[in-house]
């Protein structure tokens, strides 16, 4: 049945076309600002995209290469009455080749990305600012603890929120990431940030955005049956003043002691 090879060829061609088409469609391409989908909002976003596209090209070339060989072989050597498969014990030369080439590619990527990694993840690269919040992933939500007016965490004016991240446009922002139970992953797709939250560790994480607006925070590590619930709202404020006003409002809500004000500040 040599025609099967045509089906496989069609699948490979469709996949390649999908990837070729992707950059031309906002919905298919990497998540970016709605007004300009080539623009990444975070300052290290372009570095990440560069690596991403590089890896896409490498895997794309390998994919096309292997598919061509595969379809060719399937087409050229269909089953034929009377022909018997040849048994070979293995080929050391082949094995060495197909081990060394991928290993070389991996080593290349590992060396090539080191600068980016250092810029984003090294402690020395962390912005020298007060942390915005301590964020703890737990099954199944993000618990957020803001330092409150005194700027210090773990004091009695801390602000506690769930799934609600706020920060200011244009400012490098630092958070401390923790986990209360299992592995979670703090993922802001538009800002190209992904960081695992590891039980027992407090991990500093930084990000920024040059656009104000609303984004989504998600968990990118399958952490249990409620994984899909770990979604948070992200609000990027235009100015520090706007952020402070939001914070003051939330602090007021948290210190409500009479119902009149409870209704007033909830606004419904």
């Amino acid at each position: 049945m040599r025609n099967w090879s045509l089906l496989f060829a069609a699948a490979a061609v469709a996949s390649v076309l999908a990837f070729v088409y992707a950059p031309f469609s906002q919905e298919w391409w990497l998540p970016n600002a709605s007004d300009n989908y080539w623009h990444v909002a975070s300052s290290y976003g372009n570095q990440i995209d560069h690596l991403f596209i590089l890896i896409l090209i490498i895997t794309g070339v390998v994919f096309i290469g292997t598919q061509v060989v595969f379809v060719y072989a399937a087409h050229k050597f269909p089953d034929a009455p009377g022909r018997v498969a040849k048994y070979i014990h293995g080929s050391q030369r082949l094995e060495v080749i197909w081990t060394i080439i991928p290993a070389a590619i991996l080593v290349f990527i590992a060396l090539y990305q080191m600068g980016t990694w250092a810029d984003i993840k090294f402690r020395s690269a962390m912005p020298k600012v007060q942390p915005l919040a301590e964020i703890t992933g737990r099954q199944f939500q993000w618990m957020m603890r803001y330092p409150g007016p005194d700027g210090r965490l773990h004091t009695d004016d801390d602000l506690f929120l769930v799934n609600d991240l706020h920060f200011v446009k244009g400012k490098p922002t630092l958070i401390y990431l923790r986990s209360a139970d299992v592995l979670h992953s703090f993922y802001l797709p538009e800002l190209r940030l992904k960081q695992d939250a590891v039980p027992g560790l407090t991990i500093p994480v930084w990000f920024d955005s040059d656009r104000a607006g609303k984004l989504e925070l998600v968990c990118a590590e399958l952490c249990g049956w409620g994984h899909y619930k770990m979604r948070g709202n992200v609000t990027i404020h235009d100015t520090q003043a706007e952020f402070d006003e939001w914070m003051t409002g939330k602090m007021r809500e948290q210190s409500v002691d009479q119902l009149v004000s409870a209704q007033g500040s909830k606004g419904n």
């Binding site: 199944f140 939500q141 769930v162 799934n163 609600d164 619930k229 979604r231 709202n233």
Partner: peptide, 15 residues
């Protein structure tokens, strides 16, 4: 909206 902290009852405000 806010869940019951310390229990498995999740917060649904964002969902």
């Amino acid at each position: 909206e806010y869940g019951l902290h310390g229990t498995s009852m999740p917060a649904f405000e964002a969902l």
